[in-house]
Design a protein around this nucleic acid. Structure first.
Lengths: 145, 145
DNA sequence: TTTATAACATAGTATTTTTATCGGGAATGA
DNA sequence: TCATTCCCGATAAAAATACTATGTTATAAA
């Protein structure tokens, strides 16, 4: 039960942008260099974040990305869900598709719902600002998980 | 971030054995029929459960499996960990291998550790007996997630 | 107005993981 | 003996993952 690298990179990217906010647009190239992640791969991750309204973008020279709100106004749950789709531990809780037609008489559904709930409660209780604050070593390169 | 079908099947299998405990050995064939899961696939799942001491087995005619303890003495966490390896949301928390050499200066490590903790606290708080109790419709086929 | 820049879009690909299936053993009760 | 049932390893198809490649489009700066 692992979070994908896209999900992990998305958090690192959002932290990176939050920490390097100066009013200027922040380019993929800069983030990629600081985080040691491929530019092209980051593009794939930043795309849903922009479409989802978590980032705003500007094209052309000296273009890039900026946060659309203050770091305290993002939950980590919101960021992860944009990338991962849903943090549900089983597909039948995803809502979109009704894979399981045995929900009424399912012995384990309530169990998985409970797990889903504690996961959501946790990730929705931590903000991007919390992650930025936690990162004490702000002078060091931002190598992260 | 999904639990594998093996993990889900393992829970269903343990519930099935707990509910059908009569002092007789319970065969894979019976479980497979009741749960509508392939016998061969169930064999792969039951193997680590037996090796891990969660089940005891008997070969030969009228052989099969039994619980090694009472249902109340199993946590769902224990069962899932035997099959899934670890419920850690990121690999660097798995302990076995030290994939990440940047732990000291990692902005997100504490966040993932916190998520890992709430997941473990939840799955270690629910017992197999809880799942058996929850399953009200004990007359119906045990179709589950 | 040109041009370099950087976002945006989409397709391809190699690797790994998942989800099984298959074939045959080894033990054992009837 | 012998059918049954657990046990064990190999194989294989399918899906997901983690990138890579090749562009196109908008735009600020020269």
């Amino acid at each position: 039960m692992k979070v994908s690298t896209k999900g992990r990179y998305a958090l690192r990217m959002m932290i990176d942008i939050a920490k390097n906010e100066t009013g200027e647009w922040i380019s993929i190239k800069d983030i990629a260099r600081r985080q040691n992640i491929s530019e092209k791969y980051l593009e794939q991750i930043v795309s849903p974040l922009t479409r989802g309204g978590l980032l705003v973008s500007s094209r052309g020279p000296s273009g890039g990305y900026m946060l659309s709100r203050t770091p305290a106004e993002y939950t980590t749950g919101e960021i992860l869900r944009v990338i991962e789709g849903s943090m549900a531990p089983v597909a039948c809780l995803d809502g979109i598709e009704n894979l399981c037609d045995q929900k009424e008489r399912c012995a384990t559904l309530a169990f998985w719902q409970g797990l889903y709930q504690v996961i959501n409660e946790y990730i929705d209780s931590i903000t991007l600002q919390d992650l930025v604050n936690r990162d004490a070593c702000s002078d060091l390169p931002d190598f992260s998980i």
